[in-house]
């Protein structure tokens, strides 16, 4: 991979220089939460890594959008209005989340809505500082080798800039003098030292490798009933999860004439109707069954197929679930470790 160096004061100049590639977005502090927002004015922006409440999946797989319009004449796909975007500050775990979604939406037949948005979105990754809930080291998603156009590793005095795509290379070539081509041995040393320091900061460590077997053996575990009793079926865990992709589809008609849109919006496997079929039979009536599906899907099925969990260790479910059902507590409970949240409430 092409690796360059950039002095910190050049970052703002660089981002200004590439505005022609699309709307510039980044993660901003809204007081009680971090969210993606347009960065129209960079003068006050601090370029620090922040974990947004809703992961960047919302750019490629928006919470709600029109798939196509219909009228008497037929159907017309809505793919024309998708803007070009440059997203700054995407964290390694979230890039891993996108790679998992790429696999799903890109599989035959590719989903044109996701693929088009992915193609029109430039990802500028940024190295992170682990927060209280991060478990990305346990899921091996704390480093990232693909899925971005440029990746900025913050080495205090300067950035190492990893060029991950041809488009990323185009960005660099807008003002090549902002970058230094020549890397020295001390840059490597500094990077290794930074990585060692950063990797020692992860507060949550957990061994996921045995999870498929543990899940298999815990199919009838009382843990599921227990967490089923606590779960509010609110769906928050699925909304904030970088790898949750489930959606529902509804038709919306205009008033008074035959035209309308078919809309896709996020759905959640925690909702009661998720597995219900026409005559009213519900394959997952109980909350415990729906929770089991989520965790089986993420920690058993995906590991079985692709050798790693489809949890990217971002810790959002840890922060979001109002009753402390999350990937850490559930995995621990299944491993037989006592979990405060379920047993003592």
């Amino acid at each position: 991979m092409r690796v360059l160096k950039m002095q910190k004061e050049n970052l703002m100049v660089f981002l200004e220089s590439i505005r022609g590639f699309g709307e510039l977005w980044g993660v901003v502090d809204k007081g009680n939460r971090f969210v993606f927002d347009k960065l129209d004015d960079l003068s006050d922006y601090d370029f620090k890594p922040r974990k947004p409440m809703i992961p960047p999946k919302l750019f490629m797989h928006p919470p709600k959008f029109s798939m196509f319009r219909f009228n008497e004449k037929g159907y017309e796909a809505e793919l024309e209005e998708i803007p070009n975007r440059v997203i700054f500050g995407v964290l390694p775990c979230d890039i891993h989340g996108l790679l998992i979604l790429d696999r799903l939406f890109g599989a035959e037949p590719p989903d044109p809505y996701y693929m088009k948005r992915r193609e029109k979105t430039i990802i500028l990754g940024l190295s992170c500082v682990p927060g209280d809930t991060c478990l990305a080291k346990a899921t091996n998603t704390h480093v990232v080798e693909e899925g971005f156009d440029l990746f900025f590793s913050d080495l205090d005095d300067y950035y190492l800039v990893w060029v991950g795509s041809s488009k990323g290379d185009d960005l660099v070539r807008v003002q090549p003098d902002l970058f230094e081509e020549k890397l020295e041995y001390k840059d490597l040393e500094k990077f290794i030292e930074w990585k060692k320091d950063r990797d020692s900061c992860y507060p949550v460590d957990f061994d996921f490798t045995a999870m498929p077997d543990i899940m298999e053996l815990s199919y009838n575990s009382p843990v599921w009933e227990k967490i089923g009793e606590k779960c509010l079926a609110c769906g928050s865990c699925t909304m904030v999860c970088p790898t949750c992709n489930c959606y529902d589809v509804v038709d919306r008609l205009a008033l008074g004439k035959f035209e309308g849109i078919r809309e896709r919006h996020w759905d959640s496997c925690m909702y009661k109707e998720y597995s219900m079929v026409a005559v009213g039979h519900n394959f997952r009536e109980a909350r415990s069954q729906r929770l089991k599906l989520w965790y089986t899907h993420k920690l058993q099925g995906f590991i079985g197929q692709f050798g790693k969990p489809s949890c990217v260790g971002c810790g959002r479910c840890v922060e979001t679930c109002p009753v402390d059902i999350n990937v850490v507590t559930v995995a621990k409970a299944l491993k037989g470790e006592p979990v405060e949240a379920f047993w003592n409430r």
Binding site: L104, A107, N245, C246, D267, L293, G304
Partner: peptide, 10 residues
């Protein structure tokens, strides 16, 4: 294979 509803394990 995109909407998720018919999933069983993976």
């Amino acid at each position: 294979g995109k909407c998720g509803h018919c999933v069983i394990e993976y």
